[in-house]
């Protein structure tokens, strides 16, 4: 389909939304409620564009391209409309960016900066404060919520849990659990898939460590729990993981579970083994690598000499890497000369 965007002609497939078309040609259209995995809702209205001959402005996420369409994404009229929307949002949003954990990764903050909104000009009563910290892994601060609906839609359309929904109407609308019983008493399974998509600081992980997003670096890896192998990005400050975000461009499509998303603190737990240990007089005592490996290899030589290769047996690990497992069976087969290698595949 031939479409003109900001004076240039492009060709798009039928069924492409205007938002998708813009992103395909590298145009950055602001949006707070769009998620390609979900049915478009058009609720934040920030992505609205001007289409010649169509009268009022239209949300790009809910409009499909049509033959001959002439679109303006950054006309004065569009910019003014977006500024008005951001003004309304920020008028009902606590300006706590100094202390807000989301600062630096907040889309509302970014768009206000981009569109030059410094403060809200609407002076009225703010939304009713409501803070739910009953879930062990994340908090919900209704004051910061912009009602984009991403959390509700992800919980419903992708996770299928339906723990949260919208309550009340108009200005009193809030994201809530049924009967106001709080997250603790809801059907929430703490997957955190809502937290991962919240564009502002309304849904925040309970982090053990204080950090600013700009202080972190990101490492893509594979989750170490079940066999689904979800891809995720570890956010690291110094030598510690401070947050986990699911990968959106992998087979888990931006989803994780409670273990993948939140359960990484075991890594820095004080109980971690830090030194080799050798049993002396019936008690395990810490020692250096040299001594520990000497004890092992001298025992290996002794057993091999006295009882032969099949006196060795080894359990390798479904928790370790392919390379670790390869080395383990190579040690047993090649160095020790036995095929007595197995692991807990059956458990």
């Amino acid at each position: 389909m031939q479409v003109t965007i900001n004076g240039k002609q492009y060709d798009f497939d039928k069924g492409t939304t205007v938002l998708k078309a813009c992103s395909e040609i590298g145009l950055d259209i602001p949006t707070l409620c769009n998620d390609e995995r979900l049915v478009p809702s058009g609720s934040c209205r920030l992505c609205q564009v001007e289409i010649e001959g169509w009268g009022k402005l239209h949300t790009a996420c809910t409009t499909q391209v049509r033959e001959g369409m002439v679109i303006h994404t950054h006309s004065d009229r569009v910019i003014k409309a977006r500024q008005d929307l951001l003004d309304m949002l920020i008028s009902n949003h606590p300006l706590e960016c100094l202390t807000c954990e989301k600062s630096g990764a907040c889309k509302l903050q970014d768009y206000c900066y981009e569109y030059g909104i410094t403060e809200g000009t609407y002076r009225w009563e703010m939304s009713k404060p409501y803070f739910d910290d009953t879930n062990p892994f994340y908090t919900f601060d209704a004051r910061k919520c912009i009602l984009c609906g991403l959390c509700v839609r992800v919980c419903d359309e992708l996770q299928g849990t339906n723990a949260i929904g919208f309550e009340n109407r108009g200005f009193d609308t809030q994201v809530a659990t049924p009967f106001g019983e709080g997250l603790e008493n809801s059907t929430c399974v703490s997957c955190g898939n809502c937290v991962s998509v919240c564009p502002v600081g309304a849904l925040e992980p309970k982090s053990k460590k204080k950090f600013r997003h700009w202080e972190t670096r990101t490492v893509r890896t594979t989750c170490s729990y079940c066999g689904v192998g979800c891809q995720m990005d570890l956010k690291i400050k110094g030598n510690e993981i401070v947050e986990v975000q699911p990968a959106f461009d992998a087979h888990n499509e931006g989803l994780l579970c409670v273990k993948g998303k939140f359960s990484y603190n075991f890594l820095s737990h004080p109980d971690r083994l830090k030194k080799p240990m050798v049993r002396k007089d019936g008690v395990l005592v810490e020692t250096g690598w040299d001594e520990a490996l000497d004890v092992i290899t001298s025992k290996m030589k002794e057993v091999k000499k006295e009882f032969g290769s099949d006196a060795f047996a080894g359990l390798t690990s479904a928790r370790c890497t392919n390379e670790d497992n390869y080395m383990f069976q190579k040690l047993f087969r090649s160095t020790l000369g036995t095929n007595n290698v197995d692991h807990c595949a059956r458990l």
Binding site: Y225, C226, A318, T321, N340, H343, A345
Partner: peptide, 17 residues
């Protein structure tokens, strides 16, 4: 549906007798 993160790999790598 395999239960451990790398139970498939441990089998693939010869972690079997």
């Amino acid at each position: 549906l395999r239960g451990q993160n790398n139970v498939q790999g441990a089998c693939d790598m010869g972690g079997l007798p």
